[in-house]
Amino acid sequence: SLEELLKLARHALRHGEEIHVLDRVITDEHEIKRLIEELERLI
C-alpha cells in the first residue's frame, strides 16, 4: 500500500538506507525525500 511505502521511505531516510521501489533501488537521500513528498500528496 502507499502507506506502507511511505513508512519504508521515511525509515530509509532516517537510517540512511536504500529503498527498493518498483524494481528500482533508490539510494540518494534527495530522491527518497522526493518519493516521500509524492506519496504524501497521493495519500
Rank of each mutant, 00 (worst) to 15 (best):
I36T: 02
R14H: 13
I32Q: 03
H11E: 11
G16H: 13
L13V: 05
D23S: 04
A9R: 02
E37D: 12
E17M: 14
E37M: 15
H11A: 09
A12R: 03
I36Y: 01
L13M: 06
E3H: 10
S1V: 13
R41Q: 09
L8C: 03
S1I: 11
L42F: 07
L5Q: 05
L6V: 05
E18D: 09
L6T: 01
G16M: 06
I43P: 01
A9L: 14
K33A: 10
L22N: 15
R10L: 14
E31V: 08
E3R: 10
A12F: 03
L5A: 04
A9H: 01
L35K: 01
L39H: 00
K7I: 10
E17T: 15
H20G: 05
R14A: 15
E37C: 03
A12Q: 03
E4I: 11
R10Y: 14
K33C: 05
L2K: 04
D28A: 11
H11P: 00
E31M: 09
T27G: 08
E31G: 07
K7T: 08
D23I: 03
K33E: 10
R24G: 05
R14I: 15
L13C: 02
E17G: 15
R41W: 10
R41M: 09
L22V: 08
D23M: 04
L8A: 11
I36P: 00
I36W: 01
H15Y: 15
E3I: 12
E38P: 00
D23F: 03
L8T: 07
L6S: 00
I26M: 08
I43W: 05
R24D: 04
E31L: 08
E40Q: 06
V25S: 06
E40L: 09
L8D: 05
G16W: 04
E29V: 15
K33V: 12
I26A: 04
D28Y: 06
E40S: 05
K33S: 09
E40R: 06
S1T: 12
L8K: 13
H30M: 13
V21I: 15
R34K: 14
G16T: 04
L13T: 02
L42E: 06
D28S: 13
A12H: 02
L39T: 03
S1G: 11
L2M: 08
E29Q: 14
A9G: 01
R24A: 06
K7G: 06
E4A: 12
D23Y: 02
E38L: 13
E4D: 11
R41T: 08
I19W: 05
D28M: 09
E18S: 14
L42W: 07
E37P: 01
L2E: 03
L42C: 04
R41G: 06
L2Q: 03
T27F: 09
V21S: 04
E40V: 09
S1P: 10
E17Q: 13
E37Q: 13
I36C: 05
L2D: 02
K33N: 07
G16R: 10
R14N: 12
I32L: 13
L35A: 02
R41H: 08
L13N: 02
E18L: 07
L22C: 06
A9P: 00
E37T: 11
E38C: 08
E3Y: 11
L13G: 01
H30T: 13
R34M: 13
E40T: 07
V21W: 15
L6H: 01
I36E: 00
L5R: 04
T27Y: 08
E38A: 12
L22I: 08
L39M: 03
L6R: 02
I19P: 01
L13K: 03
R14Q: 15
R14D: 14
I19S: 01
L35Y: 11
